[in-house]
Design a binder for these strands. Sequence first.
DNA 1: AAAATTAACAACCGCCCGGCT
DNA 2: GAGCCGGGCGGTTGTTAATTT
Length: 305
Amino acid sequence: MHRAGAHISREEIHAAAGIRKGPWQAEEDAALMDYVAKHGPRDWSSIRSKGLLPRTGKSCRLRWVNKLKPGLKTGCKFSPEEERIVIDLQEIFGNRWAQIATYLPGRTDNDVKNFWSTRRKRLARLLQSPLPISRRNLAGEAVVAASFSKFEDTFSAALPCNSPCLDLIPFTEQCSNNQCSQEPYAVEDSDAAKTVSVVIEPAINDSQPTQPPPFDQHLLNLPPLPEAQDLVLAFDDLPLPEFIACPDQCEAMRLPEAPATFFDLDVAGHEFKIEHPEMPESFFDEFPSDLFDYLEQPVAGQKGS
DNA sequence: AAAATTAACAACCGCCCGGCT
DNA sequence: GAGCCGGGCGGTTGTTAATTT
């Protein structure tokens, strides 16, 4: 038994009340369907009080609304059209998922919410990868590489590459030679604009001719896709800041300051206005959905092709 | 083939609102 | 008007399936 004043968890309360939680069984679904057929989708709490199911009214309602209600599109992904609607309406309504769901027959607020959440995570992962977008010339030399990092407060600018092989190092890693007394990846706040430092290292293996990594080849071989291609090409127009050497004479160099305005372009009639520090939200809102597929496209000649 | 990672889905929780007493 | 209760909603977490390494 519980001591006086001891904490009693919700689980214990539910268990004591005989309330079931977790995944629904087929029999429970059947009982719920039977109840709704007889009484309609209302008075959810009476389902338990009448002893029909050991579930809370909330749980019953949620199960009905999200899984059992007729006409739901269960088991099929959002179509491009549905994705577009969600993106457009999210801009209008914000995170009012129930309202957005009313524009999508067969979709619930939970569906929309899950779709948006997954999309956010996916985009965040994409933007945090050290080399989401890079370009090389036909000789395989890196000509422009652009990388977003933790866009909450940082991003890197386009990098002029005068070496056949330059690697961008993720901000989270340490200076590889461990001789740099300063934090080479430090991100500093300033009133005017965020200051971002990027470390560039020479190629690890200078004796070997550098082969373009598969990722770059896949960018070069991409089929026409206006939105994504225009976005990639936009990196060409970025200002290229001066590099400064590490004061500790290590081989790292710094890219001292990022431009205040990163994007301002029109892509296939879709206006991009991505400005730091407002970049995160606007980028999420405007990020073309098909750009995911573009950037994550399987590399030709690799596994599976 | 196994392990790790990611995406998609399901369900719960806390908060809020409106109706009822 | 205050308190209670049911229902709705958004946020979050847990689970499972699919994919990648």
